[in-house]
Each structure stands twice: as structure tokens, then as C-alpha cells.
């Protein structure tokens, strides 16, 4: 029995520590000025996060190295991943983020890659509109009308047809979307408090 309860406490330790840590760090939002202990814990936690990144990046490189050794079909992709990871790490170690080569790589690879994804978003948003936007139900029909209203509001078309169109679109955006967004977030925050309540009661855990 003693052995059992000891095991349970050990099992629950990550969750207990998580709740205590959460409370201490969260206290910075309601004490003014923040107390020193909470600042230390927050800073220590923040500083520890990169170590997890280092471990997982190591695992990432190991996985791609294994793929190359096994001569998987993804070898070119694996080689580029390992090569670029090693290059970036070396550049970072040598010159830091201020290194001109690093800055040029960042600006021309990372930023361009990000912009490529963002461009893909704009196209991918249109894709389902054309693929599945069919008025199969009244709600779907309403959704289609709202989408067209938005398209007309955020481009000059609406104003060119009738000034009432962008005004209606703005009304929907500011008041209806604003209110629904508010409801969404308030519900999420209540859900978050419920989550913490479950964690305090050890009904929700941070380890399996």
C-alpha cells in the first residue's frame, strides 16, 4: 500500500509541479511589482526551454542521418536538412545572429520561405471556396453570402456597386464578428480555468 501511494505521488509529480509553477508565474499578473521568487522561476523556465530545443534538433538530425544510412527515397531532402542545420549552427556559433552571412541567409531563406507559405494560404483559402462551397443547406448558403459580402467589402467592388455593401460588411466585421470572437475567447478562458481546476484535482495530467 505504501509502495502504491509512493508510486502515485511520483506519477503525479509533473502535474503538481506544473500547477505550482503555473501559479507562481501567473502571480506576476496580479502582484505589483512582481515578487522576486516568481521572476526567478519565470526566467529559469524561459532559459531552460532552449535546451529542449537542442535535444529535439539533435533527434531531428539523427533521424535524417538514419534515413541517409538506410538509403531511403528521401535522401536528398535529408541531406539538405542536415546540411542546412549544421551550417546554421556553425554560423550561429561563430558570429551569432549579427553575422552578415547568417543575416543574409535568414532574410533570404527563412523570410522567403515564410512568405511562400503565406502566399500558399491565400491560394488555399480560395481552393476550398471553389471546391466545396455549395449551398447544400441554408446555413451553407448563408456562409457563402457572407463570404461574398466580405470579398466585396474588402475590395473596391462593393463601393462601386453600392456604398451600402461595404457598410454592411463593416457592420458584420466590427459587431457580429467582434462579438462572436469575444464569446469564443471568454468561453476559452472559462475552459482554461476548468482545466486548471481539473489539474489541481489531479484529474488532468502532464504525463501518461
Amino acid at each position: 500500500m505504501g509502495q502504491q501511494s509512493q508510486t502515485n505521488i511520483v506519477q503525479e509529480l509533473p502535474t503538481i509541479l506544473g500547477v505550482i509553477g503555473l501559479f507562481i508565474i501567473a502571480s506576476l499578473y496580479w502582484t505589483e511589482p512582481g515578487w522576486e521568487g516568481a521572476l526567478v522561476i519565470r526566467n529559469a523556465t524561459t532559459l531552460s526551454l532552449p535546451f529542449a530545443t537542442i535535444i529535439t534538433v539533435g533527434l531531428l538530425i539523427r533521424r535524417h542521418a538514419r534515413n541517409i544510412i538506410r538509403r531511403e527515397e528521401t535522401t536528398p531532402y535529408d541531406a539538405i536538412t542536415i546540411g542546412s542545420a549544421v551550417l546554421i549552427v556553425l554560423l550561429g556559433l561563430v558570429g551569432g545572429m549579427a553575422d552578415p552571412t547568417m543575416a543574409a541567409l535568414y532574410a533570404n531563406v527563412n523570410v522567403i520561405g515564410t512568405m511562400a507559405v503565406i502566399s500558399a494560404i491565400s491560394i488555399s483559402v480560395f481552393s476550398p471556396m471553389i471546391r466545396i462551397y455549395r449551398a447544400k443547406t441554408p446555413i451553407m448558403g448563408f456562409l457563402i453570402l457572407l463570404s461574398i459580402l466580405a470579398l466585396f467589402t474588402y475590395t473596391p467592388i462593393g463601393e462601386m456597386i453600392h456604398p451600402a455593401i461595404p457598410r454592411l460588411g463593416d457592420f458584420v466585421q466590427i459587431w457580429i464578428s467582434g462579438a462572436s470572437d469575444s464569446a469564443f475567447w471568454i468561453s476559452t478562458y472559462i475552459g482554461a480555468v476548468a482545466l486548471i481546476t481539473r489539474m489541481i484535482l489531479l484529474k488532468e495530467r502532464l504525463r501518461p
Binding site: M129, I130, R134, A135, I144, L151, T155
Partner: peptide
């Protein structure tokens, strides 16, 4: 505006 018009036409034609 041009893209909005194309998408709107595509949605209408699809429906």
C-alpha cells in the same frame, strides 16, 4: 478586386 471577382464568379458557377 480582380481575385475577389474571379472567386465570386467561381463560387456562383459552382453553385
Amino acid at each position: 478586386m480582380a481575385i475577389a471577382l474571379i472567386v465570386t464568379v467561381a463560387i456562383v458557377v459552382g453553385n
